[in-house]
Design a protein around this nucleic acid. Structure first.
Length: 1010
RNA sequence: GCCGAAGUGGCGAAAUUGGUAUACGCACCUGCCUUAGGAGCAGGCGGAGCAAUCCAUGAGGGUUCGAGUCCCUCCUUCGGCACCA
């Protein structure tokens, strides 16, 4: 009887399917009939496939096979997240090149996956470590750079001087290095970041568009952490300079009317509770606050301040702390900046300024206004340092701070208002007085993508230190109606001069009705171009600048355009004279060669120059485009922080497209030194100067591997394309992903990054959708038999290949799907696996009962049709466990029958097929079928046959079941009630009482109330 | 501390979404067949009771003819975030 032999039939059918190429994605897919099923990209680890992988691939495969049977054109693919640290660590230890160990691991994975009978299109397999893949990872980085979304910045990291390396927070134990016990310090390093924060709002809002688990969505929302409130400026006065509080208040009052443009002496804070401003009794700066880093700091905190030393000590002490320490040590510490006082703009009172590490540098402005009466942290701090606590919201305040909502008190014009109203009123007041503004803050931080590692995609940038360090001559060209001191010019000028650059900002002639040519001529007469020239043009000045460049025909270092236009587009009214003052014909091809670097800065909300125009402009110049959130429309504000950053010559340049991929060299020393291993490769820098000029070198860090996995689902669509990351045609045909199955651990990493990448592609015009994964689910974790996480440490790891060898792939597939709901965490049970093998053995033996006689009585018929119906519904909803349970019921009935009709057994094989394709295909062929079961359609069931001829109705009296009845289906309500009431048991329970109410639920129950 | 999810037999879990709680599987028990069984087949299996019946979905309350399912309070477990102003 035991002739079911999976080790024989499974490889046989896998070969057959592959030979007949059944699972390649069909070419004739259209947006209506396509079905893109995506199992999450695995990291090909040396220890091989895990049962968790098998769960993901099986679930996707069942769904894919089902969809094919429904007639969908299915795309299902697997690839490899093959860059990453484990391979590199292995390389250091065993002196094997990661490429070799990785390829070996991939070959192993591929064989293991194939042995599960997963129906993927192997012709589209991709690996993140292959140059033809990471070429496009690098291209994505450049896309980010060109759109102003990639920038280089210094940031603190955990640093171990012993190992000379950056440590992740998890590698720091008790403030010491996990390996060598050296005290870990905070070190600033230059790192590349992606500006994911620019997309925070859309990333949060668009979650409404997708079918994802609610939990996942809310975790992402929480991670993005949107908070609404206000940014408030506090003027700071130097204690030595002010006689008394009265003077300070007078000073403050003057500033309400016309605030000076001096930012020194102002501390900005972010608060979600502007309504409590009257209760702000002191300010707190984080120890890393920018002000503390700046050259004005000694003056700021009072040159003669008695506690200057104390402050420095506090800063140094904080530097030694790790992030971890700061999180765990909840005891408040801090130090007062005794040289200064701040003015509360609402009360006009002088309040003290402190520095404390309970304030985070990386959130908001890095400084806060403390309202100890209504914030627990401020309360603790105030208690410790004996600072004033002033109640401004009425509410329970017995112990600690009351941070709830209530009526405002002690707050002048806010008194009596509820919190929400008070917030609004305060924000309006702040804006009116010019001391604050409405502000939305996010917890989300920009994404750090630099890794000082070898086994990743090299960052495709070149740099030139000399260019960065040179002094430049800036020429500012103002716009229509402006002058050399308009808008952001004065502050930028001062900032640039402070850095040692020269700045010329002329007042151009005829500014009320500008003549572009004449303005250009004026400039020609007054300036001289050189390779050290940087031109910054605003608005109409952009046209002047371009004419100037064309005319002069000399290369300059950099040109920056802020909200400029290359066609005469005046939104309010036509200005024929201005329009006619030049021909508006620009030779962009020539212009491209006249500056090393072009930047277009666009105010993303500008009413005068729309974003699209700036996009177009940047494209023509091959410029980097930066979308800034301007402080004033069309950059009319004095303080536009983006400009200093963008005006400087960075000494950075993206590599040319023809230089992609920037390949990883082979001559690499992996030893950890804290420098990227690429630093020591000669090959890596070969020919770079020939390509880019003297002094240029390649970036030596590599990209975070999350960048590789942020776009892989696009590469599957067109994996061999060497002109684009994917063709427009392929993108249109297959995207977005219809079903994505992956781990819950990636919610705030991979899933967020992928959405970010997709939105950037959308904005750049490559795609016409802005969410990559329409439907997403997580597989549940599979625990060991001891209900602990599978790990070598516990010795409870189950290797799927062992299970395949002992029981067969079909058994493994069915068992993993039967364990419980797909999304749930559940423990392994080898006995459970045996149960499923037993089931398949029984299925196998049913074959012997198959008879073609149509005259057979089929007692199982209702169950058969109900099962087809239920399995179809369950597959739609990914409820594989209950689908299998239903099939088991059917098989139990089949087992009881003497014979099974041929067509009925075929029907069953069709619904079994997605789950256990090998045995189903084998039995199908044994039944005499010549065509593959894989190519069969999904069966229909007969609705009429799913209806039972007999129904069971129970009778309840006052909610308790007292009797059960069998009726013919279709019996009327009156009849049922009549029979029920005549029943002896019911009569006994009624005890002669008259029913008050009788409820009949069709075909189910009669409920009698007495 | 904050946010979220979940608590049903000895175990994994079902329950048409308010209508016979425990489908299906595992483990266990009994029997048959066997030289043998970690095989197969037949049957049993929430608890108490000889039985009628009673009690059971983390605990307590509520709504309802009727609650595992809806509402309130609490407990436990597991995840996530964590000085985010």
């Amino acid at each position: 009887m035991k002739d079911y032999n999976p080790s024989k039939i499974e490889p046989k059918w896998q070969k057959e399917w592959e030979k007949h190429d059944l699972f390649s994605a069909p070419d004739d897919a259209t947006i209506e009939n396509k079905m893109y099923i995506l199992p999450q990209l695995p990291y090909p680890s040396g220890s091989g496939l895990h049962v968790g992988h098998a769960e993901v691939y099986t679930a996707c495969d069942i769904y894919a096979r089902y969809q094919r049977m429904l007639g969908k054109k299915v795309l299902q693919v697997i690839g490899w997240d093959s860059f990453g640290l484990p391979a590199e660590n292995y390389a250091i230890k065993n002196n094997v090149h990661p490429k070799i160990s990785t390829n070996k691991a991939i070959n192993n994975f591929r064989e293991q996956i194939k042995s599960l009978g997963i129906s993927v299109d192997w012709g589209r397999e991709v690996g993140a470590h292959n140059p033809d893949y990471y070429k496009w990872t690098q291209w994505f980085f450049l896309l980010m750079y060109k759109r102003g979304l990639a920038y280089r910045k210094e940031q603190s990291v955990n640093w171990c001087e012993g190992c000379k390396t950056v440590l992740a927070n998890e590698q720091v134990v008790d403030g010491k290095c996990e390996r060598c016990d050296t005290v870990v310090e905070q070190k600033k390093m230059e790192q590349w970041f992606l500006k994911i924060t620019d997309y925070a709002d859309r990333l949060a809002n668009d979650l409404d568009k997708v079918d994802w688990p609610e939990e996942t969505k809310s975790r992402q929302r929480q991670w993005i952490g949107r908070s609404e409130g206000a940014e408030i400026s506090f003027d700071v006065v130097n204690v030595q300079d002010v006689q008394n509080v009265e003077n300070a208040v007078k000073e403050q009052a003057k500033r309400y009317n016309k605030r000076s443009d001096t930012t020194i002496g102002t501390i900005k804070v972010f608060t979600t509770r502007p309504d409590t401003l009257f209760g702000a009794t002191y300010l707190v700066l984080s120890p890393e606050h920018l002000l503390v880093q700046s050259s004005e700091f000694p003056a700021f905190c009072g040159v003669n301040s008695a506690n200057r030393k104390e402050i420095d000590e506090y800063i140094n002490k904080t530097k030694k702390k790790t992030e971890l320490d700061r999180q765990t040590e909840k005891e408040k510490t801090g130090v007062e900046l005794k040289g200064v006082k701040a003015i509360n703009p609402a009360t006009g009172e002088e309040i003290s300024v402190w520095m404390a590490d309970y304030v985070l540098a990386t959130y908001g402005t890095g400084s806060i206004m403390a309202v100890p009466a209504h914030d627990q942290r401020d309360f603790e701090f105030a208690k410790k340092f004996n600072l004033g606590i002033k109640e401004v919201v009425s509410g329970n305040n017995d112990e600690g701070a009351f941070s709830g909502e209530g009526k405002a008190v002690n707050s002048d014009f806010l008194n009596g208002l509820e919190t929400a109203e008070a917030k609004e009123k305060m924000i309006n007041w702040l804006e009116e007085k010019g001391v604050g503004k409405r502000k939305t803050q996010y917890k989300l931080r920009d994404w750090s993508v630099s890794r000082q590692r070898f086994w990743g995609a090299p960052i495709p940038m070149v740099f030139n230190k000399d260019r960065k360090n040179k002094k430049y001559e800036y020429i500012f060209i103002h716009g229509y109606g402006g002058d050399g001191d308009s808008n952001y010019f004065p502050k930028l000028k001062r900032d640039l001069m402070a850095l040692g650059h020269k700045v010329i900002a002329f007042d151009l002639p005829d500014t009320e009705e500008p003549n572009i040519c004449r303005q250009m001529e004026f400039l020609l007469d007054n300036i001289e171009f050189s390779e050290n020239t940087v031109i910054l043009a605003h608005s109409l000045g952009g046209a002047v600048a371009m004419k100037l460049l064309e005319h002069e025909n000399k290369k300059v270092a950099k040109v920056i355009f802020s909200d400029c236009f290359f066609e005469p587009k005046f939104v309010d009214t036509a200005r024929p004279a201005v329009e006619a003052s030049c021909d508006w014909n620009f030779d962009f091809e020539k212009l491209k060669t006249l500056a090393d670097e072009y930047v277009v800065i666009s105010d993303s909300n500008c009413p005068i120059i729309p974003r699209e125009h700036s996009e177009d402009f940047a494209k023509r110049l091959n410029a980097r485009i930066v979308f800034a959130h301007a402080n004033g429309p069309h950059f009319m504000s004095l303080d536009e922080p983006v400009f200093l950053e963008e005006a400087l010559v960075s000494g950075l340049m993206p590599v040319k497209f023809s230089d992609l991929p920037v390949k990883l060299p082979d001559d690499v020393d992996f030893r950890p030194t804290g420098q990227s291993p690429l630093t020591y490769s000669e090959d890596f820098q070969k020919n770079v100067e020939e390509k880019y000029g003297r002094g240029w070198k390649r970036e030596m860090d590599t990209l975070d591997t999350f960048m590789c996995s942020s776009w892989y689902y696009y590469r599957y669509l067109d994996p061999k394309n060497d002109k684009e990351f994917a063709s427009e045609k392929a993108l249109k045909k297959w995207m977005p992903v219809d079903f994505y199955l992956g781990g819950e651990e990636h919610v705030n990493g991979h899933l967020l990054y992928s959405r970010f990448f997709t939105k950037v592609l959308f904005d750049a015009g490559y795609i016409d959708f802005d969410e990559p994964f329409l439907k997403h689910r997580h597989q549940g974790l599979i625990l060991g038999e001891d209900s602990r996480k599978m790990s070598k440490r516990w010795g409870n790891v189950i290797n799927p290949t062992d299970v395949v060898n002992e029981f067969g792939a079909d058994t493994l597939r069915m068992y993993e799907m039967f364990m419980g709901p797909l999304e749930q965490t559940k423990p392994w049970s080898t006995d459970g696996v045996r149960g499923l093998r037993r089931f398949l053995d029984r299925v196998w033996n049913l074959y012997k009962k198959v008879n073609s006689d149509d005259g057979l009585k089929a007692d199982y018929e209702a169950t058969l049709h109900k099962t087809v119906k239920k399995v179809g519904e369950d597959l739609e909803n990914l409820r594989f466990n209950t689908a299998i349970a239903k099939m088991m019921e059917l098989v139990n009935e089949f087992s009881k029958a003497d014979e099974i009709r041929h067509k009925d057994f075929e029907l069953f094989l069709k619904i079994l097929f997605p789950f256990a394709p090998h045995i189903a295909e084998e039995l199908w062929s044994k039944l005499g079928n010549k065509k593959f079961l894989s190519l069969a359609g999904w069966p229909e069931y007969d609705e009429a046959k799913t209806v039972d001829s007999k129904i069971t109705v129970v009778a309840q009296i006052n909610g308790k079941v007292r009797a059960s009845f069998e009726f013919d289906a279709g019996i009327s309500e009156q009849e049922v009630i009549k029979i029920v009431l005549e029943n002896e048991v019911i009569k006994k329970w009624l005890d002669g009482k008259e029913p008050k109410k009788i409820i009949y639920v069709e075909g189910k129950l009669v409920s009698i109330v007495v």
